[in-house]
Simulated scan of single mutants.
Amino acid sequence: MKIFTIVLSVIAIGLIIFNATKLNLEALFEGESYTAILTIIAALCAIILLQILRISKKIEKLNKQR
């Protein structure tokens, strides 16, 4: 599970970097820039969810040890 979350996090970071290059700072909410912003936000949400999953698995492991 740990490798799975790391791989997905790396993919999400790659999407953020790729879409950051597609941003047009003069017209952020038009055309391709708008799609890039939405994809960046979605990738950030995915990273946050994966980190929550990783932390919950650590807590679950600690509770089983008690």
Results as ranks from 00 to 15, higher is better:
S9L: 03
M1I: 07
V10T: 13
I11W: 02
I13Y: 09
I17K: 10
S9T: 09
I52S: 08
K64M: 08
T35R: 15
A42Y: 02
L38I: 09
I48R: 14
V7K: 01
I37V: 12
K61R: 15
K58S: 07
I40Q: 04
L38C: 11
L53T: 12
L49A: 14
L62I: 11
N19L: 14
T21F: 15
R54H: 11
N24K: 05
E26T: 14
L50K: 01
T5C: 07
A42I: 02
I55Y: 11
Y34G: 06
I55P: 01
I16Q: 05
A42F: 05
I47E: 02
I16C: 04
E26A: 13
I55M: 05
R54W: 09
I6D: 00
I11C: 03
L25P: 10
M1F: 09
N24Y: 04
Q51S: 13
I37R: 03
I52T: 08
L53D: 02
E32T: 15
K58P: 01
I13L: 14
E32M: 08
L28W: 07
L49W: 07
I55V: 14
A42Q: 03
A20K: 11
L25H: 05
I59R: 13
I3C: 00
F29V: 09
K58V: 14
A42C: 03
E26G: 15
T35G: 11
L50T: 05
K22L: 07
S9Y: 01
A27G: 02
I16A: 04
I47Y: 05
I6L: 13
Q65H: 09
I11A: 00
L28R: 07
A20Y: 12
A36I: 12
I13G: 06
L23E: 03
I13H: 00
I55L: 10
K58T: 08
N63K: 14
E60K: 12
L50A: 12
M1W: 04
A46G: 03
F18T: 14
M1R: 07
N19V: 11
K58I: 10
E60I: 08
F29C: 06
C45Q: 05
M1A: 10
E26I: 08
L38E: 08
N24L: 06
A20M: 14
T35N: 12
S33V: 07
L49D: 10
T21D: 06
I13T: 02
Q65D: 13
F18I: 12
L8G: 04
F18C: 06
T21M: 12
M1C: 02
T39G: 08
G14Y: 04
I41A: 09
I11Q: 00
L50I: 07
L28S: 06
C45R: 05
T39E: 03
K2F: 02
E30P: 00
K2W: 00
F29A: 05
T5V: 04
A27P: 02
L15F: 10
R54F: 15
L28P: 04
F4N: 07
G14W: 01
L15T: 03
I37S: 03
L38V: 09
I48N: 11
S33P: 01
T5I: 08
Q51M: 11
A27D: 13
L44R: 01
I37N: 00
I11D: 02
I40F: 10
